[in-house]
Simulated assay, not measured.
Amino acid sequence: MPTHDTPTTATPFSEKGPSLQAGPPRSRIFVSNEFGLILLIVIFTIVFSLSSKGFLSPFNLFTLGRNTAVNIMIGLSMMTVIVTGGLSLAVGAVGVCAAMFCGYAIEVLHLPWPGALVCGIAMGAALGFVNGIAVVRTGLHSFIITLATMSIFFGVMVFLTRGEAFRGLPPEFTGFGKMKLLNYVSPLLILTIAVALALAWLYRSTVLGREMLASGARPEAAELSGIHVGRITVFCHSLSGALAAVAALMLVARNGAAIPSMAGQLGQDWLLPAFLGPVLGGAILNGGKAPVLGTCLGATLVTLLTGGLLLMQIGGFWVQTFLGLLLLVAVFMDKVRRSYLAYRNLA
C-alpha cells in the first residue's frame, strides 16, 4: 500500500484506486455510500408520491430543485473543510455576511449586480481566509475557531447593517432564482451541478486537489513530502467561505432580498444541512476524502425528506428531530460499513 512519505505518493485520491481492486467490482458498488443514497432517494420518492398527490407536481419538483441546489452548495462548503480534518461552524454566518455585503454593494455603493456578486463571493472567501489563518496560527481545532468567528461575524454584520434587509435588488438578479427551465428545472440547480463538477475535477485531476487530500489524510507525511499543510488549510477555508457565499447568494436570488436572518440566528439553520450532506455522502471526519458525488446525493436526500415530511403536514420540530437522528444513524452505519469493507478486504 503506498504511503505519503514522498511527493509522488501524496495523492490519496488517485492512489486509492488500485487498492479498491482487491474486491469484486459489484460488491464495492453495492456497499458504497452512493448506491445506498440513490436507493433511499428512489424509495422515499415513491413513498412520498404515493402518500401525497402533490409531491410530483411541477411546482413541487421545481421547489425541491431550488432547495436541493442550496443544500448541496452548503454541504460542499462544509466538505471542503472536512477534507482537511477540520470543521466549520461558521458556514452560515459567512454566507449571510457575504450576501449582506452583496446587497450593500448594490443598494449603497450602486455597483452593477454582476460586480456585487463578485464582491459577495470575495467577502465569503476573505472571511474563510480569516478562519484558516486563525486555525493555523493558533494551532486550535477549527471547531473552536469557527465557533467563535460564527458569533463575531454575525454580530458585526448585524451591527453594521442594523439588522436591516436589502430589498432593492435588480430584477435581472432576483429573476434568476425564480426562472424555470422546461417547467421543472431551476437554473440554481444547474449552477450547483457545475460547481460540483468543478470540485470533482479539482480533487481528481489537479496537484492542488491531491495535496488537499494528502494534507487531510496524513498531515505529518504531507509536510515531509514538501506540502505546506498550513497554506492548504487556509486555502480550504477560503474555498469553503466562497462556496458558502454562493449558497447565500442563491438564497438571495430565490427570496428576492438579502436578509440577516436568512440562515437563522448566527447562521445556525445551516449547520444540520452542512453536516448531513458530507457525512451521508461518506466524508471522513478525520480528513483525506472528498466525496463530491456522495455529498450531492446526501444533500438531495435531506431535501427530499424535509420537503416530503412537510408536505405530509408533519411539524417542523419533528422534521428537525428526524434529521438529527438521521445524522447519528449515518455516522453509525458508516462505521459498520467500513468495518464490513475491512473484514471482506474490499478497502
Results as ranks from 00 to 15, higher is better:
residue 80 T to I: 05
residue 59 F to P: 07
residue 105 A to L: 11
residue 44 F to G: 06
residue 44 F to L: 09
residue 70 V to S: 09
residue 66 R to S: 10
residue 76 L to M: 10
residue 81 V to M: 04
residue 103 G to R: 14
residue 98 A to H: 06
residue 82 I to Y: 02
residue 82 I to F: 03
residue 81 V to D: 06
residue 94 V to I: 14
residue 60 N to M: 12
residue 102 C to I: 05
residue 82 I to M: 11
residue 91 V to H: 02
residue 85 G to E: 01
residue 72 I to H: 07
residue 67 N to E: 02
residue 70 V to Y: 00
residue 100 M to T: 11
residue 59 F to R: 14
residue 98 A to D: 15
residue 93 A to D: 02
residue 54 G to A: 14
residue 51 S to F: 15
residue 97 C to D: 07
residue 88 S to H: 02
residue 109 L to P: 08
residue 79 M to Q: 12
residue 110 H to K: 15
residue 69 A to R: 00
residue 79 M to N: 04
residue 52 S to H: 13
residue 75 G to R: 01
residue 73 M to W: 00
residue 50 L to W: 12
residue 106 I to R: 15
residue 80 T to M: 11
residue 109 L to H: 09
residue 104 Y to P: 03
residue 48 F to K: 12
residue 53 K to M: 13
residue 86 G to K: 03
residue 91 V to Q: 07
residue 87 L to Q: 03
residue 81 V to I: 02
residue 65 G to K: 08
residue 98 A to W: 08
residue 99 A to F: 10
residue 61 L to K: 10
residue 56 L to V: 14
residue 100 M to D: 04
residue 68 T to M: 11
residue 95 G to L: 08
residue 99 A to P: 05
residue 61 L to E: 12
residue 60 N to A: 12
residue 52 S to F: 11
residue 86 G to D: 00
residue 59 F to D: 15
residue 79 M to V: 01
residue 54 G to K: 11
residue 84 T to N: 05
residue 87 L to K: 02
residue 47 V to E: 02
residue 109 L to N: 13
residue 109 L to T: 12
residue 48 F to E: 05
residue 71 N to P: 04
residue 89 L to R: 01
residue 46 I to D: 09
residue 80 T to S: 10
residue 61 L to Y: 08
residue 85 G to L: 06
residue 57 S to T: 15
residue 101 F to N: 15
residue 106 I to S: 10
residue 47 V to L: 14
residue 68 T to F: 08
residue 69 A to S: 13
residue 56 L to A: 10
residue 63 T to K: 04
residue 103 G to V: 15
residue 63 T to W: 12
residue 101 F to Y: 07
residue 43 I to G: 08
residue 62 F to D: 13
residue 106 I to P: 07
residue 53 K to C: 04
residue 71 N to V: 00
residue 87 L to D: 06
residue 48 F to Y: 09
residue 71 N to Q: 07
residue 90 A to W: 02
residue 94 V to F: 07
residue 99 A to K: 07
residue 80 T to A: 08
residue 108 V to N: 14
residue 93 A to N: 03
residue 71 N to I: 08
residue 77 S to H: 03
residue 97 C to K: 04
residue 89 L to C: 00
residue 107 E to M: 05
residue 50 L to F: 11
residue 45 T to K: 05
residue 81 V to Q: 06
residue 81 V to K: 04
residue 52 S to Y: 10
residue 65 G to H: 07
residue 102 C to G: 08
residue 65 G to C: 07
residue 61 L to Q: 13
residue 53 K to G: 12
residue 45 T to I: 15
residue 44 F to S: 08
residue 73 M to R: 00
residue 108 V to T: 15
residue 43 I to H: 01
residue 58 P to M: 09
residue 68 T to K: 00
residue 85 G to I: 09
residue 81 V to S: 03
residue 56 L to I: 13
residue 69 A to G: 11
residue 65 G to I: 10
residue 78 M to S: 01
residue 67 N to L: 11
residue 90 A to S: 10
residue 86 G to N: 05
residue 92 G to I: 03
residue 85 G to W: 02
residue 102 C to F: 11
residue 90 A to L: 08
residue 73 M to F: 00
residue 53 K to L: 12
residue 80 T to D: 04
residue 76 L to T: 05
residue 52 S to M: 10
residue 86 G to F: 00
residue 100 M to S: 09
residue 96 V to I: 03
residue 47 V to H: 07
residue 71 N to A: 01
residue 90 A to G: 03
residue 77 S to N: 06
residue 73 M to I: 08
residue 44 F to C: 11
residue 73 M to T: 12
residue 79 M to R: 04
residue 102 C to Q: 13
